[in-house]
Amino acid sequence: MNPVASIPATYGRTADGDLAALVCDIAYAAIPGARGLRVATSWRPGKPMSEWTRDDFYGASAIVGDEAGFHDHIAEQVQHQTELRDLRRKPGSARVSTPWGQSQSSEIYADGVIFHSTASHGGFKLDRARNALMPVALRVLGGWYEEDAEWAKVATGFPDLFTAYERRHAEKTLRNYYPNCWEATNDRFLKPGESHENDRRLFGEKHARDWIVVSAIRSDEHPGLTDCIARLGGVRSAGVQRRFLVPSGEYSAGRFGFVIDEARHREL
């Protein structure tokens, strides 16, 4: 059996000297930045690659370490576009009312699995039969799954309808935003550092009785110090707040908030 032909990628250099590639109608350029190469994207630039400039790009898909990383990223996009072609998703014609407003366009992934886009947001609608087939840990009552994070539940429940690239992103999204769902579908507990939301929960449990900064500003009255407003457990709705001075060189908001050390940080 002959292997499935991949969608081709064309490589070259832009007018700015940046490494570039074209996959289907999507243009990519590796633009140097502080953290490596920013992979900028554009749709149908409409001119030869050698005439592309940085002003022609308006999106970004990744940050890679070097040109080899750029080639790896493009290879991933080639695989993604090839698999998309073979999935044969179809444009839908129905315009329906969604939780985010009237749908303006739709895409049919399979019978009973339709993605709807609105003026402001979008997401999947699973019909009753499809939603009943979703694992209980992933199922959303009513069958609407919004596009920012809940889409990952659909990709996890029906992996054959998604590309390998989409499945990798779905796994990461589910793990970071719905750790309980991830644990239920993977039959193991997450370790610290594996999930953003799980780490947030662990931080909250550990510091429930600590004063966490919710607002901070460098103090004009006390040079070199940061004026911090803290609430118990970092809960903004908590009734009591306290003010502390923290050395500016020490203060950093961190991932989930700065923890006040009552023995060292002076209260105002």
Results as ranks from 00 to 15, higher is better:
residue 197 E to L: 10
residue 236 R to Q: 10
residue 131 N to G: 04
residue 55 D to R: 12
residue 206 K to L: 09
residue 62 A to K: 09
residue 180 N to S: 15
residue 81 Q to S: 09
residue 192 P to I: 00
residue 116 H to R: 09
residue 34 A to Q: 12
residue 9 A to G: 05
residue 2 N to P: 13
residue 135 P to R: 09
residue 176 N to E: 14
residue 50 S to K: 13
residue 139 R to M: 10
residue 57 F to W: 04
residue 100 W to V: 11
residue 88 R to D: 15
residue 198 N to A: 14
residue 241 Q to M: 12
residue 146 E to W: 15
residue 191 K to L: 10
residue 106 S to M: 10
residue 28 Y to R: 04
residue 133 L to V: 03
residue 116 H to P: 05
residue 164 A to E: 13
residue 53 T to M: 05
residue 121 H to S: 12
residue 233 G to E: 02
residue 226 T to M: 08
residue 84 L to Q: 08
residue 208 A to Q: 05
residue 132 A to G: 08
residue 89 R to H: 15
residue 263 A to I: 07
residue 235 V to Y: 03
residue 192 P to Q: 06
residue 134 M to Q: 06
residue 88 R to F: 01
residue 47 K to C: 05
residue 241 Q to W: 10
residue 246 V to S: 05
residue 219 S to V: 13
residue 191 K to W: 04
residue 28 Y to K: 07
residue 236 R to M: 13
residue 126 L to C: 04
residue 166 E to P: 00
residue 24 C to D: 11
residue 225 L to P: 04
residue 173 T to L: 06
residue 6 S to F: 08
residue 262 E to S: 08
residue 119 A to P: 02
residue 140 V to Y: 12
residue 218 R to Q: 14
residue 29 A to P: 02
residue 100 W to R: 09
residue 13 R to C: 11
residue 222 H to C: 05
residue 130 R to M: 00
residue 220 D to P: 07
residue 26 I to H: 07
residue 204 G to M: 04
residue 5 A to N: 05
residue 218 R to V: 11
residue 150 E to W: 00
residue 134 M to F: 03
residue 251 Y to F: 15
residue 35 R to M: 06
residue 185 T to W: 13
residue 135 P to F: 08
residue 226 T to P: 01
residue 80 H to E: 07
residue 251 Y to S: 12
residue 11 Y to W: 13
residue 119 A to N: 13
residue 30 A to V: 05
residue 110 A to N: 03
residue 103 S to G: 11
